[in-house]
């Protein structure tokens, strides 16, 4: 007979672990990864490879040699950070810039706070924003999608970049762009790798919802806010401000709202807090897009709202049984 095992209840556990949740996120990101590799080719594969490998390696080194604890790479969170970081970078980013982004993401934004769960800011976004500020040339140098075996790369600006540049020079919107929304939804928007296909990202988002990995309230509140803000401004002056559909489908909107803003660690715990957080992200994004000097504001908005999360967690609690 075995020695009896004794522990407090409960004695069974749901088939869920940090690792399984992260694995689901990786699976959910696969359509976007595939599309980006197909459209940007080997250079994108290199960015992805360097990003994931350096994130995992850095986390291993930091946990084993600086924190002197068992390595935590098994939870796959570093893989998720690596993929998200890569999807946030242009495919033309040199490998060493990617590596610096990974150092920022893992070593500074994640591990200095104590590792997964302790960080205040989303590591991938922190890495991206650091690179955006430090290496603006590399980070705004977009390659037009060309396909895995396509000809030489053509570089260009993202739709949002085109708009910002044109408006700054006093142009009118109707002259600057003639957006093809269907194409935006499917493929072929210039931008960082992860922005290429809204549909691929949405497929991953639906997978996460179906697997109950995340709840939809944050993402939906971002979308609603962006749509409402854009609609109001667009109705006021359609020549100066872009419309809601354009704003929902361009830039890092889908990637950010589905995968970055919903990061467990850096989003509020309560549903109400999450909605406020989402509204904040949507509003700040639109303000930066309309009035800021950067064409895209998603990552700044998420980063700013990350800082507010502890306050939201303090202010909003979930409804308790039998208490008014």
């Amino acid at each position: 007979m075995n020695r009896l095992l004794v522990s407090p209840s409960p004695h069974i556990h749901a088939p869920v672990s940090t690792r399984s949740l992260m694995r689901d996120v990786v699976i959910a990101l696969m359509p976007a990864v595939l599309v980006s590799v197909v459209f940007y080719g080997w250079s994108e594969l290199l960015v992805l490879g360097v990003s994931v490998a350096s994130c995992v390696l850095l986390e291993y080194l930091v946990t084993r040699f600086l924190m002197k604890k068992p390595s935590t790479i098994g939870d796959l969170s570093a893989v998720v950070t690596g993929i998200l970081l890569a999807l946030n970078l242009p495919s033309t980013t040199p490998w060493w810039v990617v590596f610096i982004g990974a150092v920022m993401a893992i070593c500074v934004a994640k591990m200095t706070f104590g590792g997964l769960g302790q960080n205040v800011f989303n590591p991938a976004i922190a890495g991206r924003v650091f690179l955006l500020i430090s290496f603006p040339t590399y980070m705004t140098h977009w390659e037009m999608p060309k396909g895995l075996f396509g000809a030489d790369a053509v570089t260009g600006a993202t739709p949002l970049g085109v708009v910002k540049e044109g408006l700054l020079q006093g142009g009118k919107l109707s002259e600057l762009i003639s957006p093809d929304y269907l194409q935006m939804l499917l493929t072929n928007i210039g931008g960082s790798a992860g922005e290429i296909s809204a549909l691929a990202l949405l497929a991953g988002f639906v997978y996460l919802l179906a697997r109950r990995v995340i709840r939809p309230h944050i993402t939906l509140s971002i979308w609603v806010t962006v749509a409402v803000v854009a609609l109001v401004f667009w109705l006021v002056n359609p020549e100066r401000f872009t419309g809601p559909v354009f704003n929902l489908l361009t830039g890092g909107m889908i990637l950010g709202s589905c995968f970055m803003a919903t990061d467990y660690v850096t989003s509020p715990m309560s549903v109400l807090g999450g909605i406020i957080y989402g509204v904040g992200i949507g509003f700040i994004t639109m303000m930066i897009r309309y009035f800021g000097s950067y064409p895209e504001g998603m990552s700044f908005a998420i980063l700013l709202m990350n800082a507010v999360v502890p306050l939201l967690n303090r202010a909003f609690h979930q409804k308790k049984y039998g208490r008014a």
């Binding site: 020695r3 095992l5 004794v6 522990s7 407090p8």
Partner: peptide, 22 residues
């Protein structure tokens, strides 16, 4: 010698509240 295995939070208070000990 221990006669069973305790598999809960490593806290004497928790363990004592649960049972007589391992």
């Amino acid at each position: 010698p221990t006669v069973n295995d305790y598999d809960g939070l490593a806290s004497c208070k928790v363990k004592a509240a649960l049972y007589a000990g391992d």
